[in-house]
Amino acid sequence: MMEPLATPAHYLVLSAIIFCIGALGMVVRRNLIVMFMSVELMLNAANLAFIALANRLGNMDGQTIVFFVMTVAAAEAAIGLAVILALFRNKPTVQADEIGLLKW
């Protein structure tokens, strides 16, 4: 067993910080693809929290959950980017505030 560089609590704090950076990107940016990358950032923060707690509790379930989250993230990326491509074909922009067709 490798000695962790720090206690799992340190990694949990790091995951909280990364999650908030991702949430900030979701709110501040208007580019759909960058917003999408912010979602990936938040998913990674959640994964890091799972791994840290798996290490702390000595339980492999946390690592199994991360496996499933990665699968869902891959599916989400494939679908989301296909949606962006379909949107771009109808209206050549990726700025979220210029796509307001359903707003009146």
Partner: peptide, 23 residues
């Protein structure tokens, strides 16, 4: 975001250090 990170980090740290870690 900074405020949320501070609160979340504090809570997570308390959660991570409560009780003894498993072998």
């Amino acid at each position: 975001a900074l405020a949320i990170a501070a609160v979340l980090g504090r809570v997570f740290y308390a959660f991570g250090t409560s009780g003894a870690g498993a072998e």
